[in-house]
Amino acid sequence: MLEDAPLSLDDGGGGKSLLIAGPPMTGKYDLMLRLLADAGERGVLITTGDPAERVRSDYADVAGVDPESVGIVDCVSKQRGGDLLEDDLVRYASSPKNVTDIGMKFTDLYEVFRDFDVPVGVGIHSLSELLMYLDPQDVYQFVRVLTRQVQSEGWTTVAVIGSTMHDEQTLHTMYEPFDTVINTREQDGARELRVRERQQASTAWTTF
């Protein structure tokens, strides 16, 4: 799906953790979905801004799978009230403020998806929502534990952060737990990305 970009999850990509960082309207969410679809046969997404049904449908459309096969940790619907989906693969955290509860709900789904014995892509959309409520160190610790948990199964994590919403110190704190940082931008009407692996220089900007 990303043939023209300097980024591939094939050939040993399992177990990687990637953070997509960029301004609004630069394709971060769509890129996350595409990378997750490449990363595994199944998907589990932690959504901090949109309800389970929407995120599940978006991922299923990109991956070409049944929406009901997608695992979701929904961090917003309980807080907003209203009807909740009754589903074996949807878990509802109390709010984006409670990373302990989010982590517990994710671990619950993690145990379920381990039994499928297939590669899984885990998405977090987005860290910026968590940082609206929480100290960067708390979000950092949550991400560090989660990425290690996911990596222990050889699965891939793809998270998103809005680069213009946070200061440089916060951004660099969020970069640290990830193997790869993907920056996005819009240039002359085209969406572009560049990739920086840990301890390496960034690639050139490439359209995607």
Score class of each variant (00 low, 15 high):
80 R>K: 14
125 H>A: 15
96 P>M: 00
115 D>R: 11
109 L>D: 14
120 V>N: 01
103 G>F: 01
78 K>P: 00
98 N>W: 00
106 F>R: 04
73 V>T: 09
92 Y>I: 05
90 V>F: 04
96 P>Y: 00
95 S>D: 12
91 R>T: 08
77 S>F: 02
71 G>L: 07
90 V>L: 06
87 D>T: 02
95 S>F: 03
106 F>N: 04
103 G>I: 01
98 N>A: 12
128 S>V: 09
132 M>T: 06
123 G>E: 10
119 P>R: 04
81 G>E: 07
117 D>F: 12
135 D>W: 15
88 D>G: 07
86 E>C: 09
134 L>F: 07
133 Y>V: 05
76 V>D: 02
70 V>L: 11
110 Y>A: 14
107 T>F: 06
62 V>G: 13
124 I>F: 10
129 E>K: 07
110 Y>L: 13
101 D>V: 05
78 K>M: 07
67 P>N: 03
104 M>D: 08
79 Q>K: 07
116 F>S: 09
117 D>K: 13
121 G>H: 02
131 L>Q: 05
70 V>E: 04
97 K>E: 12
134 L>W: 09
115 D>I: 09
92 Y>R: 03
63 A>D: 06
117 D>H: 08
118 V>Y: 11
125 H>Y: 10
75 C>G: 00
63 A>F: 03
85 L>C: 00
80 R>S: 06
62 V>M: 08
86 E>L: 08
64 G>Y: 05
102 I>H: 01
